[in-house]
Nucleic acid binder design. Structure first.
Length: 274
DNA sequence: AGTCAAACCTGGGCGC
DNA sequence: TGCGCCCAGGTTTGAC
């Protein structure tokens, strides 16, 4: 599931492959994926554009184009963005193909067709609710310990729900939420109001540490996720709890439990997490 | 403000 | 081997 570390890895691997390349033509095989335009308009506006830079915000990937346009992609759960040689046959779930000026394609592949693509004037992100409503970029300078304390102040509810709330902190999904909570030693159903200052400070540092670690290992490839070159990440080898239901806790040996928290499958250690 | 479920979609894992 | 059921999950939406 592409979360912040996966999208960041896609961005970093894709950028050198597409930067300053021209989009010669576009083919759309699944119109519903393009959120704000008809496929014909999407194609017309993109033809001849040059990709100037890539950026990431939360789990959104932004392609900054010339002519004041930005192509925005959300991979949701099974989306992939890869650069392929034109001769490589299309995957049966490749639904958008950007023909680059060279002999290569930028391809959007998504077995579940959950991904989202938008083409908007640069900076005009209001119409994309999920993007304009994002909270702190957790690895940025702006996300300080003080700002985190203020985010928590007066809030109630489950800790897990808070971590998944993109309007507070952008980019954490189910995998990293579980991993952060394990490392911080906090129960996913802990009520925010009961956190001590020491616990919330520890949580802040763990959020930054786990996301940075995920990037360092180039993301988590449990099923579909690959980077811009089509290569799997390595963080699945480092998971402490996610997808390890029924297995022993790596810290204390207790059998890991699975519950539903914030509507999500949640794995945790009943002994290490309070 | 918060919680929860449904919707979108399809491959994979499971039981039989 | 094969069928069919159910689940996974990011985000939005709508009901309580």
């Amino acid at each position: 599931m592409p979360e912040l570390p996966e999208v960041e890895t896609v961005k970093r691997t894709l950028e050198p492959l597409v930067k300053n390349k021209m989009i010669r033509d576009v083919e759309v095989f699944c119109p519903k994926l393009i959120q704000n335009l008809e496929p014909v308009a999407f194609r017309e506006k993109l033809r001849g554009r040059t990709i100037k830079a890539l950026a990431r915000r939360g789990k959104y990937l932004l392609f900054q184009l010339d002519a004041g346009l930005t192509l925005i992609v959300h991979l949701r759960m099974t989306g992939q963005l890869t650069v392929n040689d034109r001769n490589v046959p299309l995957n049966k779930h490749t639904y958008v193909v950007f023909h680059l000026g060279s002999e290569e394609d930028l391809r959007f592949t998504d077995p579940r067709k959950f991904g989202l693509l938008y083409l908007v004037p640069t900076g005009r992100f209001e119409e994309i609710k999920g993007l304009s409503g994002l909270g702190y970029e957790p690895l940025s300078k702006e996300f300080t310990l003080e700002s985190f304390r203020q985010l928590l102040a007066g809030k109630k509810g489950f800790l897990k729900a808070f971590l998944l709330d993109q309007s507070k902190i952008a980019g954490i999904g189910n995998i990293y939420a579980d991993e952060i909570l394990f490392e911080a030693g906090l129960h996913p159903q802990r009520d925010l109001r009961t956190l001590t200052e020491e616990e919330s400070d520890r949580l802040y540092h763990t959020i930054r540490h786990k996301l940075a670690e995920g990037i360092r290992y180039r993301g988590t490839s449990l099923r579909d996720y690959v980077d811009g070159r089509g290569e799997k990440g390595g963080f699945q080898e480092k998971l402490n709890v996610y997808s390890r239901r029924g297995e022993p806790c790596l810290r204390c040996g207790t059998t890991l439990q699975r519950i539903k928290a914030a509507g999500r499958g949640t794995v945790f250690c009943p002994r290490c997490q309070h």
